[in-house]
Design a protein around this nucleic acid. Structure first.
Lengths: 177, 177
DNA sequence: TGACGTTCGTTGAATCGTCAACCATGGCGC
DNA sequence: GCGCCATGGTTGACGATTCAACGAACGTCA
């Protein structure tokens, strides 16, 4: 349980730049879609459904595909169903299952939204970055994904360590990320 | 108003990898802090306050610094005040102003959280990525930030364009990001 | 068949964020 | 000093997300 390895000044600068930039980017993409009455998560649901055979997906598959909790997906799809973008059908082969299917108006909405969204992704991100740097981003987040999300070296779940720590009283700085 | 420039297959692959990886990363960092009863936004507030002179910041400065809306900050700081992490004082020089000040218990909480958080950032991100790729990420999101968030070529706010579009009926694919 | 554990999807409550007022104060022009 | 607008911060209502609990259907093993 050695002294934590803080980030170097330059690492910290880049990390904070990343956090801020990523936030900016997502806000912008959200705003782009807001004009069409869609949120980014909703848009992604439309995309996944549009790519599926018969524009239909089991709820569980859809949830995994957009990386939402099942509960969240239930709520979101309910709203989208009310809005007429999606229909629910019960699955013939598995009576527990529910099929979410893109309606025609849902597809039309996606056709409206897609060019706007893609333009936003380009204009706010892709076109700003060199190909090499973009590749680097791909590699980096590929590693993040394949790393799995497990926390390392947290055997116990301390829920308030209070482990005596020595000289903690250096200036206020260097507490950050 | 030419045909939208879709992403190439490789760009799309990287973009989706980024979205998924970024989500994974944030989830992991959130989980890391959850054990201490902190969320990531709360943690960042603690950090900013700890770095400020007298561990004190005007609400507006703090809001800007963590990139939250003022309203959101009011709510979050209220919760943190209830939890004893932060105190509010009215600003002597500007009677509209409110000063948020880190309490000692708030600082102690940060001292507990910081090593865990930094370990998460390293283990889940920084240490997985080569220095060169990490620099690339810094450059990329630097550009995103300095780009500003303005949407391009959206003169009007159509709020439902319905502009006649020609042959839109190619397969279900290529509607995505 | 029937008991058991698992997966599917939903529900309702609690929490968190957003949005549109709102009041109070400050700063500027006159 | 007096309008007038901009800024600082809060509030309450609403919307979205999380979380724990649940019922229903499946699969398997005996």
């Amino acid at each position: 349980m050695t002294t934590p390895r803080w980030l170097t000044a330059s690492q910290q600068r880049i990390w904070r730049t990343y956090l801020l930039g990523a936030a900016h980017l997502m806000e912008r993409l959200d705003r782009d879609l807001a004009g069409l009455g869609l949120s980014l998560p909703e848009y992604e649901i439309l995309v996944r459904l549009s790519e599926a055979p018969d524009r239909t997906l089991r709820m569980a598959e859809l949830a995994e595909s957009v990386h939402h909790s099942r509960s969240r997906l239930t709520h979101t799809v309910s709203r989208m169903e009310t809005a007429g973008l999606v229909e629910r059908h019960s699955c013939p082969s598995d009576r527990r299952g529910v099929l979410a299917k893109l309606t025609d108006t849902g597809y039309d909405r996606l056709v409206e939204a897609a060019p706007i969204h893609v333009a936003g992704v380009r204009d706010g991100f892709v076109d700003l970055v060199s190909d090499a740097d973009f590749e680097a981003i791909g590699r980096a987040f590929e590693s993040v994904i394949s790393r799995g999300g497990q926390s390392t070296s947290l055997h116990n779940t301390p829920t308030r360590g209070a482990e005596s720590r020595g000289a903690e009283s250096r200036g206020a700085e260097s507490r950050g990320t």
